[in-house]
Computed example of a mutant assay.
Amino acid sequence: MQLTRHQADLLELIAFHGSYSACLDQNEFERWPDFFLDDCHYRIQARENHDQGLPLCILWLEGRGMLRDRVYGIRETLYHDPYYQRHVISTPLITASNDDEIVAETNYQVIRTKRDQPSELFNAGRYLDRLQRTPGGLKLKSRTCVFDSEWILNSIIYPL
């Protein structure tokens, strides 16, 4: 049975999310920038700001170099209690696609576990993604993590 283009895109996108989540959940942050194009955008933004078209984000990184700098900061300069993350990702909704690009929206939940505390829901929202097709597979052109709550627990250290 031949898959339609939409079905093939969906399977590729699900596999992408699985690899992305595993990278972060296994604390392999050095691999995280490899999921992005060199000229990329990564934002974490409150739903209220996003819905009103306001640009304010709690984190806005432009280019893979800034993502690598964030990883360096996590490993070498930021002081924080280490914690584990577990991503729970919904089935993506592809809103547009062509030969070069996939545009998708995917719900996420991030559960945080500190070594001496019970697990807690840390962040929930949706990824708004533009992914580019490359010879090495899908790469993020932009990812905006739109979180639902007006409040976030402590600070966001690790990528969502």
Rank of each mutant, 00 (worst) to 15 (best):
T106W: 00
N123K: 08
Y79G: 07
W60L: 11
K114E: 12
T4P: 10
P92Q: 10
V103W: 13
F122Q: 00
I102A: 00
Y127L: 02
I156V: 12
A22M: 10
T134F: 05
D51W: 03
A46R: 12
G136M: 05
T95N: 02
V71A: 10
I58R: 14
L160R: 01
L3V: 05
V103A: 11
S19I: 13
E28R: 15
L37Y: 07
D99R: 11
H6M: 03
G53W: 03
G73T: 10
Y83D: 06
T106L: 11
G63F: 10
Y83G: 02
L61Q: 10
E105R: 09
W60R: 15
T95K: 03
D69G: 09
P82G: 11
D51N: 04
G125M: 09
H80T: 11
Y20K: 01
K139T: 07
Y127D: 04
D34I: 00
Q117Y: 02
R130T: 08
L56A: 13
P33F: 12
D100I: 04
S90N: 08
Q7S: 13
R130K: 14
I157N: 01
N98M: 01
Q45V: 08
D116V: 13
M1N: 06
C23E: 05
D148G: 09
L67I: 08
E62Q: 15
E30G: 08
G65A: 15
D25V: 06
I157T: 10
E76K: 10
L140Y: 06
W60G: 12
E62D: 14
L11Q: 07
A15Q: 11
L93W: 04
V110A: 11
Q7Y: 09
G18Q: 15
F36M: 05
M66K: 14
Y83E: 02
W151A: 06
